[in-house]
């Protein structure tokens, strides 16, 4: 326990640490807000949280610092990442504003609120810092434990009840009751035959010499991409890569190079033209 913690000012080391890490934390927070992809936002937030954990430790809250890293960064943020994976990248990730004036209002409110908070803190007479030295004399965890199990025991119990309720609630919310028996493969194929569309299995995604991925649509005979070849999830997310023009582009480049080298003009390939139009 460093005696500086009880002082009005902190040690130079802590000051240095604060200024460096505070910058990191603010940058992380800004990245959380402004990163286009939610995965990046989540990672930035995790970084900010780790910085905060360090600040907790510096402020003498050892238990909280560890809990911050283990529970928050380790568990909760990972939960976020799982959900991001489940939900995937959506059009909502776009930073383009759709509500008129929302951005300006938000900015105005944010700045106003921040200024007011700063003014409030600046006005408050926060001269005395007792430091946590005495409180942590018997160890931070022991101190917390004695408080939790004496003074805050009811709040603690109720929090336990809250956690259980939340767990049950999450299960209820995400649970989907299956009201009928899952259909077997045989039944599904019989249904396909009966309906008469797509009797064969769905076409596979495009497999080319240079591309072999599930997000690339296979091309129809006329060169247009077929959306059927891409899985439904990717289709809904709008994550289809269209490579139909690539081959033609390559061909064009090849012809141009050949033209340059052979110094003659190529015959206009009418067949390509049609497929170009179609691919548009």
């Amino acid at each position: 326990m460093s005696p500086q913690l009880a002082a009005y000012t902190t040690s130079t080391g802590e000051a240095f640490q604060f200024w460096v890490l505070a910058t990191v934390a603010v940058i992380g927070a800004l990245c959380t807000v402004f990163m286009k992809k939610s995965v990046h936002s989540a990672l930035s937030l995790a970084g900010t949280m780790i910085v905060l954990a360090v600040f907790y430790l510096a402020n003498g809250a050892y238990f909280l610092g560890i809990v911050q890293i283990v529970v928050y960064t380790g568990a909760i943020m990972m939960l976020f990442l799982f959900v991001v994976m489940l939900v995937g990248v959506t059009a909502a990730d776009s930073l383009k504003e759709t509500i008129k004036g929302q951005r300006w209002l938000a900015l105005l409110c944010g700045i106003g609120f921040g200024v007011l908070l700063f003014a409030g803190i600046g006005n408050a007479s926060l001269k005395e810092f007792d430091g946590t030295g005495r409180a942590n004399a018997n160890g931070n965890v022991e101190g917390l434990a004695s408080l939790i199990f004496t003074k805050y025991v009811f709040a603690f119990e109720i929090t336990g009840a809250l956690l259980i309720t939340a767990a049950v609630g999450a299960m209820v919310l995400t649970h989907r009751e299956r009201t009928e028996r899952a259909r077997t493969q045989r039944e599904l194929s019989e249904q396909r035959i009966r309906e008469g569309k797509h009797v064969p299995p769905l076409p596979a995604p495009g497999v080319y010499a240079r591309h072999n991925a599930v997000d690339i649509a296979g091309l129809l005979p006329d060169g247009t991409p077929s959306e059927l070849t891409v899985s439904k999830t990717l289709r809904e997310r709008g994550q289809i890569r269209d490579v139909s023009a690539e081959a033609l582009g390559d061909l064009k480049a090849l012809e141009q190079r050949a033209e340059e080298r052979l110094e003659r003009t190529a015959i206009e390939p009418t067949t390509f033209k049609r497929s170009e139009e179609a691919s548009k």
Partner: peptide
């Protein structure tokens, strides 16, 4: 500062997860 940034983020982001 962090609180304000977070609040502004709530207001301007559309992705529920963010």
């Amino acid at each position: 500062l962090l609180f304000t940034i977070g609040a502004t983020g709530v207001l301007i982001r559309r992705n529920a997860i963010v």
